[in-house]
């Protein structure tokens, strides 16, 4: 507890913890439905686009969140459209866009001469990246994401479970697909500075997959995913503070450990 209060006495840590908890909640809830719809790679694709957008923002001297969010939302629309069209398969579409955006970002950063420090912090995250305005914007956005997800929870379930049925019974599935994509885009951009473009999608995938090892119905999976995600985040950031390890990577490793534990518990329960 002593370490914890010491940790929280740094304003940058405080900001990271507040934003991190909110991002973990958003990502893990959205993650359940992205994973179930076999769209988990969309998170990965969007984070790479976010990296490209971040590079552009930094070169042009804009505030990172304000320029990155609209670009990533636009990319989310594009990815959804590409996934729906039968000409290019969804996974290839995501791969094309994500590697393209990554290459563009690397190119912009290296040409602009900002060098490896920036590149490193964009790719793998930096706990120092969050300014006070960033934090306020992040808190507002993630609260909006959480509210929208919970208000539309039943409809999101229906669309995730059986899109055809939902559409046949008059639910505007197009709208909900867009909603999910936009919420995911916003969540990724907010979490990206801390977790890094390479690692942010782990927050979407791991908690959902872990929870599904043990729970077999939708609500418990979603709740467990949310709780697990916050716990893993807190353990990860505390470990990174104590041992001075990279924050994003520490959180991912804790999530891997949780997945292993849940996997084993799931196996035991099955017997």
């Amino acid at each position: 507890m002593n370490i914890f209060s010491l940790m929280m006495s740094y304003p940058f840590m405080m900001r990271a913890v507040v934003v991190g908890i909110l991002v973990s909640l958003c990502a893990s809830m959205l993650g359940v439905c992205l994973v179930l719809r076999k769209l988990s790679m969309i998170g990965d694709g969007l984070s790479h686009v976010g990296f490209g957008a971040l590079a552009i923002a930094s070169v042009l001297g804009f505030s990172p969140l304000e320029i990155t969010i609209p670009i990533v939302i636009a990319a989310a629309f594009l990815l959804l459209k590409l996934t729906e069209s039968s000409k290019i398969k969804g996974d290839s579409a995501i791969a094309i866009i994500s590697t393209g955006a990554l290459a563009l970002g690397v190119m912009i950063i290296s040409v602009s001469g900002n060098g490896n420090a920036d590149l490193n912090s964009y790719l793998f995250g930096s706990i120092l990246a969050m300014s006070n305005t960033d934090m306020i914007l992040s808190v507002v956005l993630s609260v909006v994401v959480l509210i929208l997800f919970n208000v539309f929870y039943n409809k999101i379930f229906a669309v995730t479970f059986d899109e055809e049925f939902a559409r046949a019974t008059g639910i505007n599935t197009e709208l909900f697909n867009i909603l999910i994509a936009v919420l995911t885009a916003v969540t990724i951009v907010i979490g990206m500075r801390m977790m890094g473009a390479m690692l942010i999608s782990s927050l979407i995938i791991f908690p959902a997959i872990s929870s599904m090892r043990i729970f077999k119905t939708f609500k418990p999976v979603t709740i467990c995913s949310a709780i697990l995600s916050v716990i893993c985040f807190m353990i990860g950031i505390t470990l990174s503070y104590i041992y001075a390890t990279p924050t994003g990577a520490s959180i991912v490793l804790v999530n891997i450990a949780a997945l292993l534990i849940f996997f084993i518990i799931g196996k035991i329960l099955k017997k």
Partner: peptide, 14 residues
Amino acid sequence: PASVSEVVSSGCLN
């Protein structure tokens, strides 16, 4: 992962 009641309830959303 869905329970029987979750699936049946989703029919009422229209």
